[in-house]
Nucleic acid binder design. Structure first.
Lengths: 223, 223
DNA sequence: CGCCTTACTGACCGCCCGGTCAGTCAACCT
DNA sequence: AGGTTGACTGACCGGGCGGTCAGTAAGGCG
């Protein structure tokens, strides 16, 4: 926070402890904005309030800084969600909605561009892609699947291929995370947050609703 | 096709007509793989079976080639869809499924990485982002909305915020288009195409299904 | 068959940025 | 205060790539 703002006329100061975190935060911002290759280390350093040389005191290469930034920011978020799911007492629909809303909040934050960054650089950093898929993608999906399974057992949701359903339920959020931090940055999104989330939750809950007792496909075509 | 494959020991040939298209195709491939900044013009030229100098005979700068490639590839696809929707006679659910399947096919093609490319470079090329949003994103969404509106009028789908619903229905496809051309390139996707599409179609059709006649939200409020 | 046009080549240039390191000065110790 | 450490700086280097252009030969024409 401090590095980003007060870069002007700063007297040279020694702050060994705070530097790495400031650099990582600045790095995620710049990398998410420009992509790895187009990002300039001098700009990362400037936003962190130090000179380029300083960055190299803490990270040996541009690539190391890049990977450290992603790993650093990503962790510790799912753990919170996992704890909440375990402790939850109320209805599964509300739990589901709560989780998605927390994700939405993350998307709007400073680090919202992270998923886009991963996607953009996956083919240049296959090891990073594999790590992300396993450690974040799959783990998040498992968490959602737990919620769905719980809802099915309680009779709130209809049964089905739980993991696939979890994945598809997550897709609109994931897509919005990517889109609103790329194309949506310049062209205002055609769909307001409110309309998007209203329709999103209502469609997903409708999709998960148990089948009606009679055959579902339009016995009488109303009109 | 010819440029990509037979680059070895090619005798120098004059083919003024075919060059631009070959260069554009190679360009989309390389740009989608590496991103704009990391892509090398020499590699684009090599895949098109020519030398770097030749590329500059047809496109003045790297950026011009980049934008031409995207615009070229993107167009003429929606028009087909629009014609099909207009002429369709059968059920809206089948039409919807057909459209999504055609999109899925496009994603698996050589140009599948295009959406990922747009997303990755949007912040470096704001004008391109705006153009894409308006000319492709919104137009595609309008097309889907037409299908939904048709389904609602025929009593096949439930009413609602049609444009928002169209957007959300499209999200899983869009996300898969991006993901399978980035992270999914190296880590095999945890969900097979078959499972994904099965659950996708079934969830979306369930979401669009008209409300049951009794009050939808669990007549006895448990919890 | 020889000449001319021009599509095509690839060696070359200059800039830009990742990475280095000799020097500087803030902070702490005594 | 003076000395010492080591966090920090920024000028510098070298390589790599976007972009150029003088030269080469394919192909058409008389």
């Amino acid at each position: 926070m401090e590095g980003t703002a007060g870069a002007a006329a700063r007297p040279r100061r020694r702050r060994k402890e705070a530097r790495p975190a400031e650099l990582l935060e600045a790095a995620v911002e710049v990398f998410a904005e420009k992509g790895f290759a187009a990002a300039r280390l001098e700009e990362v350093a400037r936003r962190a309030g130090v000179s380029k040389g300083t960055a190299y005191l803490y990270f040996p290469t541009k690539e190391a800084l890049f990977k450290a930034a992603i790993r650093e920011i990503v962790l510790t978020r799912l753990a919170m969600g996992e704890r909440e799911v375990e402790a939850w007492q109320g209805s599964s629909a509300v739990l589901l909605r709560r989780m998605l809303e927390q994700w939405a909040q993350l998307v709007r934050s400073r680090q919202g561009g992270l998923l886009k960054l991963i996607v953009a650089e996956a083919r240049n950093f296959p090891d990073l892609a594999a790590w992300y898929q396993a450690e974040v993608g799959e783990r998040g999906n498992r968490l959602l699947a737990v919620v769905l399974r719980r809802g099915i057992e309680r009779g709130e949701f209809r049964a089905g291929d739980v993991e696939a359903m979890a994945h598809i339920v997550a897709c609109p959020m994931a897509f919005r995370a990517i889109w609103s931090n790329s194309v949506g940055c310049y062209e205002t999104l055609p769909l307001s947050d409110e309309r998007f989330y209203d329709s999103y939750f209502s469609l997903m809950l409708a999709a998960l609703r148990p089948e009606p007792q009679e055959t579902p496909d339009t016995q009488e075509t109303k009109e």
